[in-house]
Amino acid sequence: MFYPNSPQTSPQLTQIPYGQQYAMMQRQIQQPYHPFATTEPQARLYPYHYQGPIQQEQGGFITQQSTAASPQYVQMRVTPVDQSIMSGYPNQTANGSSSSSFNYNIHPQQQQQQQQQQQQLRHHAMPVGSVPLQDDRYRKQLIVNYLAPDVTSTDLHELFSRFGELDGARIIYDKQTNMSKGYGFVYFCHAEDAKEAVERMSGYEFHGKWLKVGYSTNPLNIVPSNSSPYVHAGSRGAAG
């Protein structure tokens, strides 16, 4: 039997160049792979992502010199942007860049009308829970959420009447099932009393439920100042 490094198959040491006398086997001759043993700084910083320098080929596509990437890492192929796409944008300079302001050559009167329309939209648009300043009635009506099913309009009136005089209180019921929808409205005579009720009743436990109280901004629920107070009856038909 002959071994790869046996004296019968191995040459004389004098015939082997210096430095390879003890590297006779194939696994010894093959050098191990060192990912950080390279002179390129990109490979030292990113050993798993770097795959060699990027070269520009004919046709405008950018390719990489090395083989496919590892399945664990996804390499994105980048193509140059066609400058003709950006030619339609206004205020574009000769080098292809555009300024931040756009001039669509709008007539001054049209621009003024658009600004007025935007101001009107901001004036009428009102986020949930906010209180408008032009109508004091919005500051007097509250919406009470997360009410228990057994709470009546009379219970709601008695709960909030300790903060001040009320114009009314009612629970909203479903017309088909005649069941409470879980929320109601309270109408105060003074805005200061309503503000105190919002601050003190939010998070209050009532009939096993934690109440959420806020201003009601729905104009359909506003009680006119010259109208008669609501009837605080315990029956659902009268309260709904």
Rank of each mutant, 00 (worst) to 15 (best):
F2V: 02
F2P: 02
T9W: 12
S10I: 10
Q12G: 15
T14M: 14
Q20Y: 15
A23R: 07
M24V: 14
M25F: 09
M25W: 06
M25N: 05
R27E: 12
H34L: 11
P35W: 15
F36A: 03
A37E: 03
T38N: 08
T39L: 13
T39V: 13
E40T: 12
E40C: 11
P41I: 11
Q42L: 13
R44T: 13
H49T: 10
Y50C: 11
G52A: 13
Q55G: 09
Q56V: 13
Q56F: 14
Q58T: 14
Q58M: 15
Q64M: 15
S66R: 08
S70I: 14
P71R: 05
P71W: 11
P71C: 09
V74N: 02
M76D: 07
T79G: 07
P80W: 15
D82K: 03
D82E: 05
Q83L: 12
M86W: 10
M86K: 06
Y89F: 14
Q92W: 13
Q92F: 15
T93Y: 15
T93D: 08
A94Y: 13
G96K: 04
S99E: 10
S101T: 13
F102K: 02
N103A: 05
H107M: 13
H107S: 04
Q109E: 10
Q109L: 14
Q110I: 11
Q113G: 12
H123D: 07
H123A: 13
A125T: 12
M126H: 05
P127R: 12
V128A: 09
P132A: 09
P132D: 05
P132F: 13
P132I: 09
Q134M: 10
K140Y: 01
L142S: 01
V144D: 01
S153R: 15
S153M: 14
T154H: 11
D155H: 13
H157C: 08
E158R: 12
L159P: 10
S161M: 03
R162Y: 12
F163H: 02
L166H: 06
G168Q: 03
A169M: 00
A169T: 10
I171Q: 02
I172E: 00
Y173H: 04
Y173G: 01
K181D: 00
Y183A: 00
Y183N: 01
V186E: 00
Y187Q: 00
D193V: 02
A194K: 00
K195T: 10
K195L: 08
E196R: 10
Y204D: 01
Y204V: 03
G208K: 02
K209D: 00
K209S: 00
K209M: 00
L211P: 00
Y215L: 01
Y215P: 01
Y215D: 00
N218A: 01
P224V: 04
P224G: 03
S225M: 13
N226Y: 04
S228I: 09
Y230M: 10
R236L: 05
G237M: 10
